[in-house]
Design a protein around this nucleic acid. Structure first.
Length: 412
DNA sequence: TCTGGGGTCCTAGGACCC
DNA sequence: TCTGGGGTCCTAGGACCC
């Protein structure tokens, strides 16, 4: 038997909203909501003062204001959040190199091998809380447990500013009456399906026969039973050890629904440039292009993909592929959202193209990318973009952003 | 007055090759 | 003339996470 591990999960409380309240003292103690700088944005994060009034993530601004008329709307500033997140993860690495960023505001730390240095996991948790508070004025909730699944569950149990420990000997007691939907990985559909089988608590899930779960959920059945028992052997994957990125994509809701093919094409080119520049920055190219369209009615949408004979990451190649997909379809409604993603990726080999024309194109792309890197996204772009009225709005960074490595998304 | 954007993983069915 | 099966790649769609 191997010794059990000690894993921390650190969750920054109301991260974007708290960062804004720290940056602007006038916002402290007030109900605020962080939104994208877009006509059709939603609330990404709200302060605890706003949550107390019923403001929730995903609400439109008007919904938030209906729940809380004095709600203060703040347009998100990605640079603040990525900067703060990066600094916080640096703090974590003072306590163990085994830090895995799950999202911009959540990380796991495997401190098994640090306990002898710092005394205990609780001591480490207190040190981390104190340092984050003193450096940034931010509160976090920390869970301590023998694995990632339980550490994440633990950090959720007390918010804000919580510290919750699940000792190995207490796991089954804690799980016995814990609702299954509290587990990371069991969403609404899975909860409903399990409830239909009269399984409501982790205790019930852990005792369910694997055979019964496998019949219903296939390969996931075994994993579900383990989750109910609090078993999770997945390692904390530290920075630099992550799997290669599998897809690179951008999608954006337009300021207004559009039907004009020229406007649609212009927007598609803009998305292609965003996808291409990020793929080139990661030094990957992809064979499969996926185009996603959501119509004006919001509910109807489609996605189509095509796989090419060779890997590409040049913006105009991506654009051509996306356009060829679009041309196979008769649009049924004005378009609300367009998305392009590149997958089937491989690492770029840095060989110079054989033909002089291709080399020139590569040089031009590199120059364009470097200007954009210095002066901000879309400072330089393909000519046909420039007169466009439709632009991607400034988006608030999605919480899936990771502070390190290849999985960063663009900071705008 | 409507409802964001970034990913990962899994399944199912079909094409194609050996 | 009729019988396969495994492996890989592809498209489409859904569940889940933040």
């Amino acid at each position: 038997m191997t010794e059990h591990r000690t894993v921390l999960h650190v969750d920054q409380n109301a991260f974007f909203a708290s960062v804004e309240q720290q940056a602007n003292p006038a916002l402290r103690g007030k109900p605020i909501a962080v939104v994208g700088g877009h006509g059709r944005t939603v609330i990404t994060t709200s302060s605890y003062e706003a949550r107390a009034k019923g403001v929730k993530t995903g609400m439109a601004i008007w919904e938030g204001k209906r729940a809380c008329p004095e709600l203060i709307i703040v347009v998100g500033d990605n640079k603040k959040y990525t900067y703060t997140s990066t600094r916080i993860n640096e703090i974590f690495r003072d306590y163990t190199p085994e830090v895995e960023a799950f999202s911009i505001d959540e990380s796991w730390l495997d401190v098994t091998h640090s306990l002898s240095i710092f005394g205990s996991a609780v001591t480490i948790a207190h040190l981390i809380k104190a340092r984050i508070y003193h450096s940034f004025g931010l509160r976090c909730s920390i869970g301590i447990a023998p694995n990632k699944l339980l550490a994440k569950l633990a950090s959720d149990l007390q918010k804000p500013d919580g510290l919750t420990i699940i000792e190995p000997e207490n796991v089954s007691r804690v799980l016995e009456r814990m609702p299954i939907q509290e587990l990371c990985g069991i969403g609404k559909k899975m909860q409903r399906a399990l409830n239909m089988m009269s399984i409501y608590t982790c205790g019930e899930l852990g005792r369910c026969e694997e055979e019964r779960l496998s019949r219903k959920f296939g390969i996931v059945g075994k994993r579900l039973k383990e989750m109910g028992q609090g078993i999770d052997n997945s390692p904390v994957v530290q920075y630099g050890q992550e799997d290669d990125v599998k897809s690179v994509g951008h999608s954006s809701t337009l300021e207004k629904d559009i039907s004009d093919p020229v406007e649609i094409q212009r927007f598609l080119l803009q998305l292609s440039e965003m996808v291409g520049s990020r793929a080139r920055r990661y030094e990957v190219s992809g064979k499969t292009i996926h185009l996603y369209v959501r119509y004006a009615d919001f509910f109807s949408s489609w996605g189509k993909q095509t796989t090419l004979k060779s890997h590409i990451n040049q913006s105009d190649d991506i654009y051509r592929a996306a356009l060829s997909i679009l041309n196979t379809v008769e649009l049924e409604q004005p378009v609300r959202l367009l998305g392009i993603s590149l997958s089937n990726l491989k690492h770029q080999d840095e060989q110079l193209p054989l033909f002089i024309e291709d080399r020139k194109k590569l040089e031009a792309t590199k120059a364009m990318d470097s200007v954009n890197a210095r002066f901000g996204k879309m400072a330089v772009t393909f000519g046909s973009l420039l007169p466009g009225k439709e632009r991607a709005g400034s988006h608030v960074i999605p919480p899936s952003w990771r502070p390190d490595g290849v999985k960063n998304i663009d900071v705008q």
